[in-house]
Amino acid sequence: MVSEDTRTELEEMLGQVPSWIEPIPDEAADHAWGMVRDLQFGETTLSQREKALVGLGAATAIQCPYCTHFHTAEAEMEGVSETGLSEAIGIASDVQYFSSVLHGAQVEYDEFVEETADIVEHVENQQAAAPSDD
């Protein structure tokens, strides 16, 4: 159970103490809320929109209906369109698919790292050589 201070903070921020916090052991409940509050809802380098899309992508990849529902609602609240939601889910699916391919084929990790560095260099060179929009 969360402390009274955390309970008050939850009620102020969310309008309630959500049921998902109740099963967290007493020793960790306040800390768990602090992580959500500070990282997901707090001001960080990522915008709320970006965080919602990252959350949706992760939720999709781990196939969690609870997280998918929450982060979809969060993304919609941040103005992400149905097309944007579909794109985020598609990217998450691509990552999960290619992770399966790479692991199943046992692609050599060090070789993959080198190839990625070469790809990044090539794309950066192409971008630098592209005509400016000015």
Rank of each mutant, 00 (worst) to 15 (best):
H69T: 04
T72L: 07
M77Q: 14
K51H: 11
T72F: 11
Q96D: 14
A32T: 02
G104P: 08
A75F: 12
E87G: 06
V80G: 14
T6V: 14
I24W: 03
S47H: 03
L39K: 05
P25S: 09
A92R: 01
K51R: 15
S81Y: 04
D38Y: 01
A92L: 03
E43P: 12
S100F: 15
I91V: 14
T68W: 14
I24N: 03
A75K: 13
Y97H: 15
S19L: 01
A28K: 12
W33N: 02
F98P: 08
M35Q: 08
I91D: 13
Q40L: 10
K51T: 09
H69Q: 04
T8Y: 06
D26H: 10
A61D: 09
V36K: 01
E82P: 01
T83F: 02
D94C: 14
E78F: 06
C64G: 06
G79H: 11
S99H: 13
Q48G: 14
E82M: 02
R49V: 03
S86E: 08
P23Y: 02
A73R: 13
A92P: 07
G90E: 06
E82C: 00
E4Y: 11
A52D: 09
C67T: 10
L46C: 01
P25T: 07
T6Y: 08
R7P: 11
T6N: 03
Q40F: 14
E4M: 10
T68N: 07
G79P: 13
P18N: 07
A59C: 05
Y97F: 15
G34H: 06
S93D: 11
D5W: 12
T60E: 02
L102W: 05
A59Y: 03
F41L: 07
G104N: 10
T83R: 12
Q63M: 09
D26R: 13
G79I: 12
A61N: 04
G42C: 01
Q16D: 12
I24C: 02
R7E: 15
A75H: 11
I24R: 01
A73H: 10
L53N: 01
G84A: 09
T6E: 01
S86D: 12
G90S: 11
H103K: 05
D30Y: 04
L10A: 01
K51E: 15
L53E: 02
F70V: 12
L39H: 09
L46P: 10
L56Q: 02
A59N: 09
T6R: 11
W20N: 10
L102R: 02
R37L: 06
A32R: 00
A75V: 09
D5E: 15
Y66L: 12
G15M: 12
A59I: 08
P25R: 04
A32P: 00
